[in-house]
Design a protein around this nucleic acid. Sequence first.
DNA 1: AATACTCCTTAACAAATGTTAAAACTCACG
DNA 2: CGTGAGTTTTAACATTTGTTAAGGAGTATT
Lengths: 243, 243
Amino acid sequence: MGQLKVLKTKEQVTCLECSARRYAWFKPCSKETLALHQERRTSQSHLAVGEYLFMEGEKPRAVYTLQDGWVICFKSLANGQRQILHIGLAGDFLGYRVNFDEPIDYSIMAITDCTICAFSEQSIDRLLQEDIQLTKRLFEIHSEASKVCRTNLSYVGQSTAKLKVAFFLNKMLHRLKERGADINNPVYFPLTREEIADAIGITSVHLCRISVELRRSKIVDCRHNRLEILDYKKLGTLASAVF
Amino acid sequence: MGQLKVLKTKEQVTCLECSARRYAWFKPCSKETLALHQERRTSQSHLAVGEYLFMEGEKPRAVYTLQDGWVICFKSLANGQRQILHIGLAGDFLGYRVNFDEPIDYSIMAITDCTICAFSEQSIDRLLQEDIQLTKRLFEIHSEASKVCRTNLSYVGQSTAKLKVAFFLNKMLHRLKERGADINNPVYFPLTREEIADAIGITSVHLCRISVELRRSKIVDCRHNRLEILDYKKLGTLASAVF
DNA sequence: AATACTCCTTAACAAATGTTAAAACTCACG
DNA sequence: CGTGAGTTTTAACATTTGTTAAGGAGTATT
């Protein structure tokens, strides 16, 4: 777990034909912008499980689109704990910040094999100058991410372990559904107990207790890289006890 | 607690002469921008303790600068809890979002009497068109706020009550220091146990235990609207056990 | 099918945090 | 300077969550 970043170039796919386009951040972009975007693309590469896209404190001079795979964005604390801030799914825009001279405040690691497109600092700057709509779109993405972070802070700070799990899984399910997953059947779900626990601020052992409870009460079954809803309504009720 | 918003107009002060300018978000703005900013200002008003600037779910058609006083920004949960997201101090930029058509996802309430400047949606839009630097500045502010939110999520999710308190108070002290407070003496600190507890995700009774402990071990003394550091170094050590 | 590896589960116990209620304290106001 | 409202503290107890360690189940590899 946790090698240095290794980006190997892969066969190229156009942005227009990108498998992630229909749910990606650049979905609303015009064909013209898309063409520009593609022209500016620095590389399209591969990241294996456990490899880092970048680490907290680095100054990656690029931003990324996750074309395929799962990543975790997380902060490491001085006490050895980590807080997972975001589960990156296909189509997510990763690593953007206003000031590239400042070190980034979180790390990104692949938890499955990933295909990632990179855009250099310069190419993004030019892109933004050429398309004012894109600036707005970027601001929107940033704004949406802030909102999600506020929501996460709220439920992590103010609810019980059981509600945290329900809310987290429910949110993940909706994100997967948006990406075309069939929620009525078991879906691929490569998060371990450890990772879910670190995302919601409990220990993996305690998460395990709750997972078993949720399974036994026939609400969700989540283990071994798969997630299955057993009672969509009950899960929703639990999740909406938070918001 | 918690009346409807009441904005009463007050004697006007120019942005250039604003008491909050030296630590406000618009500090780095040029005189020209400042003049524009001031020209666009919709109103300068007063908010009494317990009054709301806006409530979650509303669509306030303005953004605000807190000239003087303290506010809390918070989300209310379905289970009756609230998560305080941010303690607003003089100079803070409040309520900004990209899309004014969407309801806002948190509330702002005054916890002391406040003086607040409002800028209408239209005036902000025009301002941004007229000064591209301001757009960048706004993006920076937004970006900084996201970063703070990530930090908050991390320590709320991953540390013990004692470390949370130390980290929170330490952070507040630094913010007050930036605003000219003399940290070597007791400073005005109008947060109640309830409010601090809701900011760091513990109960007020438990917070009380820890406050007493921190006072007895001569680290900080925080109660009755005042905050006094007893041992700056020890507080720093505790706080840096988090990051 | 045996092996090794990782991940998940269980259990017993410890520690941290929440709950409730009452008492003590502080401060503003009359 | 006494009163009362709001805030802080204390205490006893309940509950949730963390810790440690061991065993079980799943998965990939031989």
